[in-house]
């Protein structure tokens, strides 16, 4: 919603970086918890889409915060369905995740068309207004950048919180043990299945929240397939961030900055076709993965049908 064109290029660039990074960070942090428990959820894209539609419906009925709550509930519900299949029946996670996303694309498209007609939700949707960081909002350059919707601050706050949960609590220890060696963790008394189930549901709720960010803090409306692969990008960002909350935050910002570069280059009036800037974040992510991956290892039990 921040009109990058009105601001000076640097401010526009920084604000756009943060804007693109926010939903990816929310979904990525959730997926980090999921993957550390040993589950990879390709249904995250579906959870995000379901969250996006639920936030539009909830917000138009009871205001933006009801939209946020319904988005989290919808994302959690989608992930719970996925988790029931992969944790308790132990079906292939990649396949089940793909199927769940397909179902979500179909359902959201169908419900949306019925609820709003072909024209869309339009401008009537109440959205989240940006909030300034107290004391910093009036500074030049930094001020407009630090005037963000509340969900951005939620995303940033989640990073240390999830780090603390994963590395400084008994629960986090059990979760990480489940992700490395399920049967061993189980033998040590960890309730592996329950942990994996709830870790996946948490990831889905965060995916739903990411969807709500798109609708309520950025676009202001819902559209068919509007997540456009951001759920998958979030999964790539988890790998790039080495399954660590801090790394995931950095990776999300990197992707956001790479996407926002087009605003900088537009202001330079280069004659390079804009599509090349659209490709840039994906190519940079590939490049960064090549530099990062060799030195890290995925959770050992990730995606295992054990």
């Amino acid at each position: 919603m921040i009109a990058a064109m009105d601001l000076d290029p640097l401010t526009g660039f920084l604000a756009a970086s943060l804007r693109v990074a926010t939903p990816l960070l929310l979904a990525g942090i959730g997926e980090t918890v999921t993957e550390r428990s040993g589950i990879i959820n390709l249904g995250l894209e579906g959870a995000m889409l379901a969250g996006a539609l639920a936030s539009a419906i909830g917000a138009s009925a009871y205001g933006p915060w009801a939209g946020v709550a319904s988005a989290m509930a919808a994302g959690a519900l989608v992930a719970a369905g996925f988790a029931a299949c992969v944790v308790f029946v132990r079906v292939n996670q990649i396949v089940a995740g793909t199927a769940v996303t397909l179902v979500c694309i179909g359902l959201t498209g169908t419900i949306y068309r019925r609820a709003y007609g072909a024209a869309g939700v339009g401008l009537s949707l109440p959205t989240l207004t940006p909030i300034s960081v107290p004391g910093l909002g009036n500074l030049p350059v930094v001020g407009p950048v630090l005037t963000q919707p509340a969900l951005t601050y939620v995303a940033v706050g989640l990073v240390p919180l999830v780090w603390w949960g994963l590395y400084r609590t008994r629960w986090g220890l059990g979760l990480r043990a489940s992700g490395e060696a399920g049967p061993l963790a189980r033998a040590a008394g960890v309730r592996v299945r329950s942990l994996r189930f709830w870790a996946t549901v948490f990831g889905g709720a965060m995916g739903g929240l990411a969807g709500a960010t798109l609708v309520l803090a950025q676009v202001g409306t819902f559209a068919e397939k509007m997540t456009a692969g951001r759920g998958y990008i979030a999964i790539a960002i988890v790998v790039l961030g080495r399954w660590h909350p801090g790394g995931v935050a950095l990776a999300a910002l990197l992707f956001g900055a790479a996407t926002a570069l087009q605003f900088l280059f537009q202001s330079l009036r280069l004659t390079v076709p804009y599509q090349f800037f659209l490709m840039l974040p994906y190519l940079l992510t590939l490049l960064a993965l090549a530099g990062v991956v060799g030195r890290v290892r995925a959770p050992a039990a990730l995606a295992a049908e054990e």
Partner: peptide, 25 residues
């Protein structure tokens, strides 16, 4: 029928899930 064509993805997804579950069981 005015139903968006993406609706068939529901069928595709559910078919895959049912086959997966049947196999696993």
């Amino acid at each position: 029928a005015g139903v968006p064509s993406v609706a068939v993805y529901v069928v595709e997804g559910v078919v895959i899930l049912v086959v997966l579950l049947a196999e696993a069981v």
